[in-house]
């Protein structure tokens, strides 16, 4: 087990109960997809795993150790082993693709060195390699905010890979992309999962994408874990339990 989520509750300061006793395991090397409506707790779940949010109660075991109480350097150490990509890519605007990708190495670069922009030759070579892997060779010096959405998300994947992550979290990585680009980004994630052996946990909306890319699915509804199983086992009934009576499945090709 890479990750064991044990009875996690999350209550926001404003009283919103975002996660209610969620427990599930993440196996090494799998492509786990979390589905559920907006507001079901998917994003909160991912952010609790890399400590962008703190859990209220419960434990998250990463490689056998509880990470929910870690502080300072120990917490940053864990974060650096868990990469993350976002719906809105969250690249640093006005900076080059190379700088953005290199920012994935910040946890192991000294503060002074990183402020001066000094990176090791090894990291620079690695950055160029990853930029190549996500198919953006030759765009190293382009400004990140001038790229298309799909390209920006690929830069974000390269940035996350620079961390040498054990786990990659993807928070609705294709929700602001068009269908064709969505598939391209999902394929890169699949490649990262299969060829580099990184465990992927991905929030998704479209069931067609879930069936095509995931190896296992969990579903959240109003903060409760209501389904855990294989992607092709989600039938009409489950679909309506997860998304509500009136929901109609939309496919993306």
């Amino acid at each position: 087990m890479v990750l064991e989520i044990k009875n996690v509750n999350k209550v926001y300061p404003n009283g919103t109960h975002a996660l209610r006793g969620v427990s599930f395991d993440v196996k090494e090397g799998e492509f786990l997809v979390i589905i559920g409506l907006s507001g079901s707790g998917k994003s909160t779940m991912l952010r609790c795993i890399n400590r962008l949010h703190d859990v209220s109660t419960g434990e998250i075991m990463f490689e056998g150790k509880d990470i929910t109480k870690l502080r300072g350097k120990d917490m940053r150490q864990v974060r650096s082993r868990i990469g993350m990509i976002f719906q809105h890519f969250n690249l640093v605007p006005r900076k080059s693709v190379m700088t953005n990708v290199l920012s994935g190495t910040l946890s192991r670069t000294g503060i002074f060195k990183s402020i001066c922009g000094i990176y090791s030759e090894e990291d620079k070579k690695k950055a160029r390699d990853y930029i190549k892997i996500v198919g953006l060779e030759g765009k190293e010096n382009h400004r990140a905010d001038n790229l298309s959405g799909g390209q920006q998300q690929r830069v974000a994947i390269a940035r996350a890979l620079m961390q040498n992550p054990k786990v990659l979290l993807a928070d609705e990585p294709v929700a602001s992309l068009d269908p064709a680009t969505s598939h391209s980004v999902m394929q890169y994630l699949k490649k990262v999962n299969e060829e580099l052996g990184v465990t992927v946990i991905c929030n998704l909306h479209f069931l067609s994408l879930v069936r095509e890319y995931s190896s296992r699915v969990v579903a959240l509804k109003a903060g409760n874990l209501i389904y855990e199983g294989q992607p092709h086992d989600i039938d009409e009934n489950w679909f309506q339990t997860i998304y509500g009576e009136e929901a109609v499945e939309v496919t993306i090709n």
Binding site: G83, F86, F89, Q163
Partner: peptide, 25 residues
């Protein structure tokens, strides 16, 4: 907040977060 969140998620030190996530903006 996006870039700040992303840089924080890489395990960067708060000073690095400011330099890479805040200053360029």
């Amino acid at each position: 907040d996006g870039p700040i969140e992303a840089i924080t998620a890489t395990g960067a030190h708060p000073i690095q977060v400011i330099w890479y996530g805040v200053v360029p903006q």
